[in-house]
Nucleic acid binder design. Structure first.
Length: 483
RNA sequence: GUCCCCAUCGUCUAGCCCGGCCUAGGACAUCGGCCCUUCAAGCCGAUAACGGGGGUUCGAAUCCCCCUGGGGACACCA
């Protein structure tokens, strides 16, 4: 009772719903979540939809779905509510207006009636000017032009330097005269706030203690600090995590291919693998590469996040995904595969027609050789229907007249095999090979090509057992032709 | 252009804060080998990095400065 209540950590993930949930954003969400869960703090989800033009409901849905899929849960947010809501900026306009009014009253902001064209022209001129002009907008001293729409501009007057101790980047400082007065409320009918203003008002009102976001926000931070001070709010701690880059070392974007989380889900990446991959991109815990969620919560420290950007490496993601697939129980995998049959060209009904034990046995044969669930479903397709086409090179190599003769003999033996189990079949075919002084490959590969259409498959005898005598004999007959 | 940030193998990184234990460690990828009915998985091995230059020091990947290179931001977008 006497010990003071430790200040609880409050962090937030604040995406703008203008597109899909980007893997870079996912990592930001993950780091925030890890901070919250690791310190028994609070994770807040806030939707930054003040850009009415570009924000969409679909994007909001995609963001929530994506986070749920990854099991990155939040304690307060648009769907669950919370004590400092609402959690959509669209519903918080009066808060921003009130804050702006206060700054206006206190002389810390002023109405601006500059036209966008005027501003653009002055900006253009300023770019080449030797000493950069102090202000792009004259309204602060000249006053607003009557009869024009008014925006509200913040007076960025401050002491010589603005700086902060960034939890991952270290000390960052800029000269205060680098910061020109900036718009906080637009001149539109609804007087919508601009990002920097809305973010500060919200973070302050929501009691955010640690702002964990992408390094692309570093240039915004001095402006925001000025705003916190003008508004009389405590300045939170900042942690700017390095950007995720594409192979060309530029900020990851659509032109780099798959950047939407959904793309990875649709290709059969597991949430555990995505998290495991993303967390290690910019952070390390000794030499450990593989983590469970619990281990991450325990081990993660913001201070251990590196300051340099990292390139998204699909190959390593693949490795981790394969690894997490192998660690997933077979029956769970069987369920996880369900959404992928269609894309793999398999009629889901033929899958449902099989027993659960059969399916699990089948999955067991493919876990070790699949990088994604989609890939697994695809390579399992031949179990449910004869291969649509056979690899011509495989045929040329393993369905020669010589091989076909062996195959015909094998088919006879299989037809009469008393026991169609993998072990018995292997024993049987090995005997055949031995009797003729041939290698097992000369039997295994032709069978494989005949049944699967390719030279690659799990061990052939378990496959035979799984397919069952009837299917096997039929498919072999099709290769061997009549007679 | 201006401001800010970053800099260890191809990639993710350990080491850097608190200089010697670093002949720079691990992982992915790549290339060999083993195993083997194919492919995987597994195991063994190989290639591969402190961007450059000045300092400081007995000693620097580690501290300081400069250069170079890369990136980010410069909106009534977020």
């Amino acid at each position: 009772m006497t010990s003071p209540e430790p200040e609880t950590v409050r962090v937030r993930f604040a995406p703008s719903p203008t597109g899909f949930l980007h893997v870079g954003g996912v990592r930001t969400a993950l780091y925030n979540w890890l901070v919250a869960r690791g310190q028994k703090g609070t994770m807040i989800l806030r939707i930054e939809d003040t850009d009415v033009e570009r924000s969409t409901e679909e994007a909001v849905t995609a963001i929530l779905d994506g986070l749920r899929w990854l099991k990155l849960d939040w304690d307060e947010g648009p769907d669950v509510g919370g004590p400092v809501g609402p959690y959509r900026q669209l519903e918080r306009y009066t808060l921003y207006r009130d804050a702006a009014q206060r700054l206006l009253r206190e002389g810390k902001a002023y109405p601006c009636t500059c036209l966008p064209e005027e501003l653009a022209a002055r900006r253009e001129a300023a770019r080449s000017a030797k000493p950069a002009p102090q202000h792009l907008c004259p309204c602060r001293t000249a006053g607003p032009t009557p009869g024009r729409r008014q925006a509200i501009r913040f007076s960025a007057t401050a002491r010589a330097r603005v700086g902060w101790d960034d939890l991952v980047q270290g000390r960052i400082e800029v000269a205060a005269d680098e910061i020109d007065d900036f718009i906080i409320l637009r001149s539109d009918d609804r007087e919508t706030p601009v990002y920097n203003f809305a973010a500060v008002v919200d973070d302050a009102l929501m009691g955010i203690t640690h702002v964990v976001r992408g390094a692309d926000h570093i240039p915004n931070t001095p402006k925001q600090i000025l705003l916190y001070e003008a508004l009389g709010y405590p300045v939170p701690a900042f942690a700017h995590i390095p950007l995720v880059l594409g192979p060309d070392r530029e900020k990851l974007s659509k032109r780099h291919g798959d950047v939407a989380l959904q793309a990875y889900r649709d290709q059969g990446y597991l949430p555990e693998a995505m998290i495991n991959y993303l967390v290690r991109l910019g952070w390390a815990h000794g030499d450990q590469e593989v983590f469970t969620r619990e281990e991450l919560i325990k081990a993660f420290q913001l201070e251990r996040v590196g300051a340099s950007p990292g390139i998204f490496d699909r190959a390593k993601l693949d490795w981790l995904n394969a690894l997490h697939i192998r660690q997933t129980p077979l029956d769970v995998l069987a369920d996880l595969l369900a959404p992928f049959w269609g894309a793999a060209g398999v009629d889901p009904r033929t899958v449902e027609a099989r027993s659960r034990t059969w399916l699990v046995q089948a999955v067991a044969l493919f876990v070790e050789r699949s990088k994604t669930l989609l890939e697994m479903a695809r390579s399992m397709a031949f179990l449910f229907a004869p291969p649509a086409a056979r690899d011509p090179k495989a045929e040329a190599k393993f369905l020669t007249p010589d091989h076909l003769a062996l195959l015909a003999e094998t088919r006879q033996a299989l037809a009469q095999a008393p026991d169609f189990s993998a072990e018995a079949l292997e024993d049987l075919v090995r005997r055949l090979a031995e009797a003729r002084g041939r290698k097992l490959v000369d039997y295994a590969q032709p069978i494989r090509v005949a049944l699967t259409g390719t030279t690659v498959s799990p061990p052939i005898f378990p496959v035979l057992a799984l397919l069952g005598r009837e299917v096997v004999l039929n498919r072999l007959a099709r290769i061997l032709g009549p007679g």
